[in-house]
Amino acid sequence: MRAGIRHEFLYFALRNAKLRVGLSILLLFIVAALIGPLFARYDPNAYVGPPAHPPSPEYWFGTTTFGQDVYSQFAHGLRSTFVVGLIGGGIGTLLGILIGLVAGYRGGLLDEILNMFTNIVLILPTLAVLIIIAAYLTVRGILVESIFIGCTAWPWAARAIRAQTFSLRAREFVDLARMSGRSSLKIMLTEIAPNMMSYLFMTFILQFGGAILNAATLDFIGLGPTQGMSLGLMMNNAVLWAALQLGMWWWLIPPGAAITAIVGALYVMNVGLDEVFNPKLREL
């Protein structure tokens, strides 16, 4: 039975062009993030070469105004971008699912309390809180940044999932499951969640992309990681030191293109996965 399901899922997944394209691009970048830094010959922040050097066999992606190796920055930045996306997006999605499902399925007083909590976090001035936190944390890493992004990004996901749950819990099959004596937890996990699986995945994708973009924003106002490198930091350095005006395209384009490609691939994948998850959208 189990093997059959997996087999069928794979069958439809592998036939879906959108999923194949999205997944290929994503895998390409994941591989690049995993093994790319192994080929980086320099420390991403060290001043190793001539300033503003265009791409060459020695410096694959060229160097920055200060003579840092762009390829090393890119490879390390890609890695931390995935870390931020996974951890930040993961925390945001999990919190959103948990709070949204429970509030939507249970309803009543619990829903009131959770919804109020959601709204409070939603209207929290993220930037102001960030500045305060940054003032206390003098040493910030990628990990802390991602956790903080995840903990502030969940409210809209929770609200959307709550609304979906509200609509699904009134459906006939959920009603019958209740009348068949299934527990609330099982109903949430096997009756309600699978019916919005594609939506949950989309939430994760949006959270993933949102976390990457949020991290870039934080980097820009000087609240990013004090150690390490990220694609956002690269772009902002490039903008700060007028890479565009000086014609240093090699400093600007790799991080920008990578972020766009990663987020875009995730979106395309999402549409493909929707078609795989939902038997009604499957094409034989």
């Binding site: 399901i5 009603d175 019958l176 527990s183 019916n195 009604k280």
Partner: peptide, 20 residues
């Protein structure tokens, strides 16, 4: 309309029976 659209019928029955 009382069957979960995302579950195969056999699996749905198995889950229901497991709950009991």
């Amino acid at each position: 309309n009382a069957l979960n659209p995302t579950r195969k019928i056999g699996r749905m029955i198995a889950e229901l029976l497991a709950a009991h």
